[in-house]
Amino acid sequence: MSWLFVMVVLLLGGAVLPSPVGAAGTTGSTAVENMVFSIPANTFCDQSHMVELSLNITNLSKSEQGIKLELMKTDGTAFAAAGTTYNGIKSDLVPGASVKIAAGHTGTYHFTFGGQTSNCDDRPFVGTLTTTGTGEAQLVASGFVSSSLYSVPVIINGGMVWNATSAADNTTPPTPAPTPVPINQPVDGCSVTQTNSLIHAMSANQDVYGTATSSSIDTVWNTQPFRAFDNSCSPFSTQNGEIKGWLAYEFKAAKTVTSYSLQMKQGDTQYGYVQSPKAWVFEAYDGKAWTTLDTRSGITGWTTTKANVYTIDNKQAYNKYRIRFLENNGGNLVCISEMGMMGY
């Protein structure tokens, strides 16, 4: 075996490929479903040394074909970055996605590593080409890796045409998020507007879903904390004479609250508005201390027709949340009809 033959075998991944036959230039080999190839990307790469990867895949079939390019990093995980397009460079292919290529057309992929992006640890070293249409397809592909030190070809099937057996695209489409099932069906005009509140309508301060607590209640009217979560006009309030205090809800299982709603006291034209909160802090308990998620002040825009909704930037799941009232709109206590907590 000559040294030249050995070199060719190494370049082609250790497989001896058959010679081209026929006018069409096909290899005559058994059709393959997945064409795997190596990408020689192990070179200098940093903010001063860029590495360019470029791939071309041509559909020589007589009909449109779905082509899927998959790239993998050294640890076997997928590299799925969309390609770059500029100054005549095109990127039609998206790694991991099936892309339609018309008969006789070429799909391209280009990406730059290093330079100012300095993404050198996130490079593909292996690629796979798969057809996702029906029937058989004829493909030819090539590419190169270019760096400040050298430029080398990406050898795919020795540069020869191959017959690809098409298989249905097995990529499982993402499951759409289910429409939230209302857990708080409206009872009356004071029900929470957001029927997908994470808090199930309560009939006592504790149930199988969680526990409601507060700093105080109005003992004359028995305004228990669960009244803020019972989805009815029966209100919660602090003790008469207290314009500061807190109302809390603790979930049995941790939830990520991304917004909350407050509805003012209903059916009390004399005291409903002035007893509504004007300033407060919305907090979560991490097991050791309270974390501030939202702070509001100067809130005077209360109506009897709808709840006020406040969106917060929270991505952490907590078991316990509370609203800590700091000021009301002039009454002798703080009172609300309902409070909702939305999220996941």
Results as ranks from 00 to 15, higher is better:
Val99Arg: 15
Ser54Trp: 13
Tyr109Gln: 08
Asn184Asp: 12
Val281Cys: 06
Arg324Ser: 08
Ser98Pro: 09
Asn184Gly: 07
Pro18Asp: 10
Ala82Pro: 10
Lys288Asp: 12
Val32Leu: 15
Ala103Val: 07
Thr304Asn: 11
Gly96Val: 13
Val187Arg: 04
Thr211Gly: 09
Val181Thr: 15
Gln266Ser: 07
Thr305Lys: 13
Asp75Leu: 02
Met72Ile: 00
Gly245His: 05
Thr305Phe: 06
Ile57Tyr: 00
Ser216Tyr: 03
Gly159Cys: 07
Arg227Gln: 09
His110Glu: 05
Gln316Asn: 13
Asn240His: 03
Val161Leu: 14
Arg322Phe: 14
Thr172Ile: 15
Thr258Met: 05
Met72Val: 01
Ser48Gly: 04
Ser146Leu: 07
Ala164Gly: 12
Asp313Ile: 08
Thr43Leu: 08
Asn319Asp: 14
Asp121Gly: 06
Lys320Glu: 10
Gly133Thr: 14
Ile57Pro: 00
Phe282His: 05
Pro95Phe: 02
Gly159Phe: 07
Asn59Cys: 06
Thr134Val: 10
Gly189Lys: 12
Gln224Ala: 11
Gly287Asn: 06
Met341Ile: 14
Gln263Ser: 08
Ser118Trp: 09
Pro178Cys: 05
Asn56Phe: 11
Thr292Met: 04
Ala317Ser: 15
Val309Arg: 07
Thr84Leu: 13
Val152Ala: 03
Gly298Phe: 02
Pro277Phe: 02
Phe5Met: 15
Glu327Cys: 03
Ser191Met: 03
Ala289Tyr: 14
Thr269Gln: 10
Ala23Arg: 06
Thr269Leu: 08
Tyr150Met: 09
Lys278Ala: 04
Asn222Asp: 04
Leu93Ser: 08
Ala317Phe: 09
Ala102Ile: 09
Asn328Val: 07
Thr305Ile: 07
Ala103Tyr: 04
Met342His: 14
Thr112Asp: 11
Thr27Asn: 10
Thr223Lys: 00
Thr85Ser: 15
Pro124Ile: 03
Ser261Tyr: 02
Val140Asp: 09
Cys45Asp: 01
Val140Tyr: 08
Leu262Arg: 00
Gly104Glu: 06
Asn119Thr: 08
Lys68Gln: 07
Ser297Tyr: 05
Phe79Pro: 01
Pro178Gly: 14
Val6Tyr: 12
Trp162Gln: 06
Gln116Ile: 11
Val6Pro: 06
Lys278Cys: 05
Tyr209Gly: 02
Thr74Gly: 02
Trp221Pro: 00
Gln47Arg: 14
Gly114Ser: 05
Val181Arg: 12
Gly115Ser: 01
Ala23Gly: 05
Ile67Asp: 00
Leu12Cys: 12
Ala201Gly: 12
Asp294His: 09
Glu33Val: 11
Ala97Pro: 01
Ile89Phe: 15
Thr292Trp: 04
Gly245Arg: 03
Gln239Asp: 04
